[in-house]
Every structure is written in structure tokens, then in C-alpha cells.
Design a binder for these strands. Structure first.
Lengths: 239, 239
DNA sequence: ACATTTTGAATGAATGTTCAACAAATGATG
DNA sequence: CATCATTTGTTGAACATTCATTCAAAATGT
């Protein structure tokens, strides 16, 4: 019935979104708008480089070339390389945060449906694609030794985790399960991150489809009363 | 005037394993033994640097200083920086691989016990500590863009995954469960990796104990007939 | 005219690698 | 055992390269 979830599909191939033009709504403050557009353009180029080359060998020249601009431009819009990377991380964090909050809102009032939508949202093409995942992993690899990154580095923050715990607690009561909500919530969110990891690594046995199946299998096993084993909702649709 | 600068300050905190001596079984080829010891010493220093500073800023000088040796020594024992990193990754891969195989062997013939031991082995202090986990994550962040890393980068390889699938299939038959063994196995191993990720990130809400609880909660939820909700087995034993 | 943005070369710091000298162990010879 | 020759291991300085940053000049828009 509901194939609503997954069809965001915001330009996963290469994303030529930020490149178009500084036109349209900004004419009085065309400059300021142009400045924001430039920043976005450079941030997207940074994500590209992180995904393609990796954190360690992502250089300012890579970013500038990727954006089709000159070498010194990044230090004009961002003060330094570190600030560019922080801005990029912040951008991805904001995007992910907005994404799951939207999914939660769209889910309505049924807790079971809310949890399901949250889980499915994780595999939406707009955020779950090779490019973004690779960029996340690049940051994760550096987060532990960079205090500035730590707050933003885990896309699933404390607030997200608390939502999971509350939902698991609610389902526990309504379903009469007997586990610790906190433990199950941790297991669930850890599995989601682990599936992301598999997808990024590019092992052949894990695709977006199989990952979604695994997530559904977890839901069915942990909350049998709410997610019957019969209908997973992922087996027939999705191209 | 020149007092020999033999610091040998290997392994400050945890592992003074490689330090012992080039003696014993190697007298004819004492040199070769010493060579292996040096290699291990440098590999350990590399892990230290990866964990403390991160992949991007781990330099040859860091490694040499960490081992208490001179700058040029790494290029003598390893041909290049890349080969040092590959050797380090291989070392960690071999260690992890040997670890889970040993755990599997010790578990006896009962499939339920085998799976449980495999899961618990993941949180053994010998491999599940901040230092090693941080080093793993550092490699993961670079693996996608470095073909040489890819084969070794995921500690849990195809063989490990197959063991999981087979065990899940066996438990499915004996317990009369109704899910797809492959999906559940993927969910399980992904959760383990995700829990590792949380532990590395150093978020306060995830410790080795809570991670183990989450893993046990998963087992109890997925295989209720085999792992009753009552006894998790993790509350008192296992240091 | 004026402010803003962009360019591209110059600069200086950091880093991987090389290498000639040096030290230590090993083996040969008497 | 003593002495020398040879191989193996180690050092630290020198070198070349890469990269982030700076900045004066040019281009662009208002």
C-alpha cells in the first residue's frame, strides 16, 4: 500500500544540483546568494573527493578542480581546509538529521509504523548511496582523533537514539515483549550503521536490497507481534 | 661520547609481547628472528599512531619515534609507507581471523553455543579495545579508495559470513523459526560491526558491557528457543 | 568609482624516500 | 682466542615532492 517512503531519489548519480546557476530568486542580493551557492558547490566537490579519493589524499586542489574553479578559491570562501571539512561534515549531518525527522513526521502516530519508517529512511537513495556513505566513512575514520569532528561525526546522535529507545519501549508494552528497550534500541541502530558500513565497503553480497531485507528481518524477529514474518514490504516493490 | 641510543621503548601501555628476545629457536638464523621482531615492533607502533593520530596524519616519523628508532629504519624493514600499512592491516586481519576460529573451535559441537561464542568473541578484550578498534576504523575509512586494502579491510570476511549463515540455518531448523538465514546472518554480523563502530567512536552511552548486552538481546530476540530471555549469560561472567 | 569575487603564481612547511657513513654481529683464518 | 673481512642492521642528514596558504593583480558586478 505504501510505496511512499523511498522515492525521494535526489540525484544520486553525480548530483549536478549545485552547479546550475545563481539565478532565480536572488537578484537584489545576488552576491550573497552566489556566495552560498559557491559554498555549496565546494562542499559537494569535497564530498566527491572524499568519496573518490579518501580523506587522506583529499587536497584543496582536488576540491577546486572538482568544482571547476581556481586553486585559491577555497581559502576565500572557507578560511582553511579544516573549516571546509567541518562545514562539509555539518552539511551532511544536517541533511541526515532533517531526513529522519521528516520520515518520522510522515509516519503518523502509530509507533510501529514510526519505527519502520525510521529504519526504511536509512536506506533511502537520497542519503544511502555510495558517494555519501563513502564520505561518512572517511569522516568516521578521522573522528576519534579530531575532537572537532566528534560531535557531528556520528550521524545518529543522542536524540536519534532516544527516539529509538522510546519507540522500543512503547512497542514492548503494547506487544508484551520482555527485553530491555535500551539494549534492543542499541542493537537496532548498531545494525543500521553496520549495514551502512557493508554498503560502503562494497562487498558484493550486500546491496541496498539485501540490507533492507536484513533490517526487516531484524524487525520481524524482535517485534513479531508488530511486524509479521509474512509481509516485509520490501520484497516486491522497489526497482 | 655517543652513548648508544637504544631506547627500545616498545609498547608503552598494553602489549609488550614483541619485546622479549630474539633467542631460543633461532641461533643459526638469529638475524632473521631479530628482523621479525623489528617488523612486529614497527607494526605495533603503526597501530599506536593510527589509533592516536589517525590515518591521515600518521607519518613515518611518528612510527619511527613511537618505536624509539631512527627515521630511515622503516624503509629498511618495509620497502615503503604503503607496504608498512598493508603489513599492519594484514597483521590485524590474521589476528582477528585466528581469534574467531579459535573461539569457534572451543565452542564444541552445539550450534547454539558456537554462535554464542562467536558473538562473544567479538568483544574479547584482546581484540576489542580502543587501540585496535581505532586502527580498524582508520583503515576502513581508506579502504574504499584503495583497492589493495579492500580484501583485508573487513575483518569479517566471506568465510566468516558463511559460518554465520550456516549456523543461522541450523538454528532455524532446530528451532522452527521462519526467517531467511542469510538475512538474519547479515543483520547479526552487521550489528556486531555497528557495535564496534559505536565503541570506537567513544560515545558515552556505549561501553563494552552495554554492547554485549545489545548483542545478547539480539540473540534472545532472534533465537528465543535457543537463548531464553531469562539467562543472557553476560551479566556476571566474562571479563 | 567601488566593493566583491576570482585567479594563479610564490612561499614555506611537512613528509616519504634515498644514501653514504657507521655499528654490530657473523664467519673465516691463523 | 685474536684479527680481519663480510654481511646485516641502523642512523641521520639531504633531497625532491606535495600541499595549504598567502597575496597582488585581474575580473566581475553594482
Amino acid at each position: 500500500m505504501l510505496e511512499t517512503v523511498t522515492h525521494m531519489k535526489t540525484a544520486e548519480a553525480t548530483d549536478n544540483e549545485a552547479q546550475s546557476a545563481p539565478k532565480g530568486d536572488a537578484e537584489k542580493r545576488g552576491r550573497k546568494a552566489s556566495k552560498e551557492v559557491r559554498r555549496l558547490q565546494l562542499i559537494e566537490a569535497t564530498i566527491d573527493s572524499l568519496a573518490k579519493r579518501g580523506y587522506a589524499v583529499t587536497t584543496m586542489a582536488d576540491v577546486a578542480d572538482g568544482a571547476g574553479l581556481s586553486r585559491g578559491i577555497v581559502n576565500f570562501h572557507f578560511e582553511s581546509k579544516e573549516k571546509l571539512l567541518i562545514a562539509t561534515l555539518q552539511h551532511m549531518y544536517d541533511e541526515y538529521s532533517a531526513h529522519w525527522r521528516t520520515a518520522l513526521q510522515k509516519a503518523g502516530d502509530d509507533p510501529a509504523r514510526q519505527l519502520q519508517q525510521l529504519v526504511w529512511a536509512d536506506f533511502d537513495r537520497s542519503i544511502c548511496n555510495k558517494r555519501k556513505l563513502a564520505a561518512w566513512l572517511a569522516f568516521w575514520g578521522e573522528a576519534k582523533s579530531r575532537p572537532t569532528y566528534q560531535a557531528l561525526s556520528s550521524s545518529r546522535d543522542a536524540c536519534y537514539q532516544q527516539v529509538f529507545i522510546d519507540l522500543c519501549a512503547t512497542l514492548k508494552e503494547s506487544g508484551g515483549y520482555s527485553y530491555d528497550p535500551q539494549a534492543i534500541a542499541l542493537a537496532l541502530s548498531a545494525m543500521l550503521e553496520g549495514l551502512w558500513l557493508r554498503l560502503m565497503m562494497g562487498t558484493e553480497d550486500t546491496t541496498r536490497e539485501t540490507a533492507l531485507q536484513a533490517a526487516n528481518a531484524f524487525l520481524a524477529a524482535a517485534f513479531p507481534k508488530h511486524y509479521g514474518q509474512r509481509e516485509t514490504g520490501a520484497s516486491k516493490n522497489r526497482g
